[in-house]
Design a protein around this nucleic acid. Structure first.
Length: 426
RNA sequence: GGCAGGUUGCCCGAGUGGCCAAAGGGAGCGGACUGUAAAUCCGUCGGCUUAGCCUACGAAGGUUCGAAUCCUUCACCUGCCA
């Protein structure tokens, strides 16, 4: 098995921290495929863009000849990993189970399942934690953890300095450590990867394996991605997460998010999120430096990621829609089929001409603004457009001649928030 | 269980009886510039049938012509003590 994977992860900027690199390298050099795992807790009904970094890293390892285990955190999701911002709200068992199964379905799409030695495994930690007794847990796992050490963890220190932390969240480390031990025993798993915020939890497992089994296991974390402003990656401009689930974030919105990545971030994102070679990435970076307005890097990044998550078919559609809607040409010049296809990718509503809906009505009904007040503000600020023509009168309403191909209005708020209005008669 | 401090809009945070839909900052949103970028500057930023009305300062009650501000009870958080 090739150990180049570590070198590749290095140049991609995918290694935040790791246990002894040389020991890990010899582990990868062994005769059998290395087994590694990464866990994903169901804290929402879908994975988000940020989860892609560890998930794709798992896939990179598999392509390099390792065997990946993806773990859905049906148990750990019931507890909640302590975070700096404060105590989490517990979800009911039903909700966690529902989210876990949805996330599991998403995880399965990113690794290969086959009967070869590197074929992936999917597990759920609820399977071995659900029926476990408290006394057993406290004696077999808890006894190996020092509270002194746990209190020294960064997240714990920060939480104790602020609003405190429940015993439940404090216990999270033990659960995740137990998972690693379990997978070490059952599947010979020798490496756990995760986001850099998971370092303490992963090392907890490494320690546990050493104490209980006298064995050596490894830890490797990938960076938590932030943009050049230091903002957490994967937050849409509106502040919400961008999700893998197409019902929660449409393929069009997903593509648009990446097309809009700042120049300063593109090269780094191409390394972190795509499987392009270093040569290809450097060529794109050169292009961005020389001809930034073409946004070749952003477009490639968006295409790669849309294909990865939604497939080639959807990528072709959203690329075509983006070209039609953001192209230099007049919307009026688009033929009916192109316009229909483009509008199919963005939110649309219907309206009746006879009801004389105003621009304010249209903005609200299409979801482009949250309230009538916001819609009026948008119009008064000069940010409302119909068919690329600015509308500055709150009372404006469409007439027959405004319709594209007899039935469409293309509504826009600001530079890039679009919605289609299908106008029906009667 | 006792004592002390706290709970304000998306977030942080000021406000101790009227001038408070509530300072300031951040985020967000719109505009200008540009390249569907960044930076910068300007504007905006609870809702509505918008010269007015409604909702809102942890919850419920009370005092008052008038309460985010005072009183009572409750909930939660933090610290110290038991």
């Amino acid at each position: 098995m090739s150990t180049n994977i570590l070198d590749e992860l290095e140049w991609r900027g995918l290694i935040a921290q790791s246990t002894d690199r040389n020991a890990l390298r010899s582990e990868l050099d062994g005769p059998d495929p290395l087994t590694l795992y990464c866990g994903f807790d169901p804290t929402a009904p879908s994975l988000h863009a940020g989860n892609l970094v560890p998930l794709l890293t798992l896939r990179r390892f598999q392509q390099a000849g390792a065997r990946p285990i993806v773990l859905a955190g049906g148990a750990t999701g019931m507890i909640g990993d302590p975070r700096d911002t404060g105590e989490r709200t517990l979800q009911t068992a039903d909700v966690v189970a529902e989210w876990a199964s949805r996330i599991r379905g998403q995880l399965e799409r990113f690794v290969e399942f086959d009967s070869s030695p590197t074929g992936a495994l999917v597990v759920d930690n609820l399977d071995w934690t659900g029926g476990q007794g408290v006394l057993e847990f406290l004696r077999d796992v808890g006894k190996h953890f020092s509270v002194n050490v746990m209190l020294g963890r960064e997240t714990v220190k920060r939480r104790l300095a602020a609003e405190g932390m429940s015993y439940t969240e404090f216990s999270y480390l033990l659960l995740q450590s137990q998972d690693y031990l379990r997978l070490y025993r059952e599947h010979g798993c020798r490496l756990q990867i995760g986001g850099s915020d998971q370092w303490g939890n992963i090392v907890g497992g490494v320690e546990l394996i050493r104490r209980v089994e006298g064995g050596t296991a490894h830890a490797l974390t990938v960076p938590l991605v932030t943009d050049s402003e230091g903002r957490k990656f994967g937050k849409s401009t509106g502040g919400g997460n961008i999700w893998l689930d197409p019902e929660m974030t449409s393929p069009y919105a997903w593509y648009q998010y990446f097309v809009n990545v700042a120049d300063a971030d593109v090269g780094r994102y191409l390394r972190l999120f795509t499987f392009l070679s270093l040569d290809e990435i450097e060529a794109l970076e050169k292009d961005i430096a020389e001809r930034p307005h073409l946004r070749a890097g952003q477009k490639r990044l968006a295409e790669e990621l849309t294909t990865l998550v939604h497939g080639e078919h959807h990528t072709r559609q959203v690329v075509a829609a983006s070209q039609a809607l953001f192209g230099r040409g007049e919307l009026r010049e688009l033929d009916a089929a192109t316009l229909d296809a483009a509008l199919a990718e963005i939110p649309t509503v219907t309206a009746r001409l006879t009801e004389q809906p105003t621009i304010v009505d249209l903005l609200v009904n299409s979801g482009l603004t949250d309230s009538r007040g916001a819609a009026r503000r948008t119009v008064n600020e000069g940010g409302a457009y119909v068919n690329n023509t600015k509308i500055s009168d709150e009372a404006w309403h469409p007439s027959e001649s405004d319709l594209l191909h007899g039935r469409w209005l293309v509504l826009r708020r600001g530079k890039r928030n679009l919605a289609g209005v299908q106008v029906v008669r009667s």
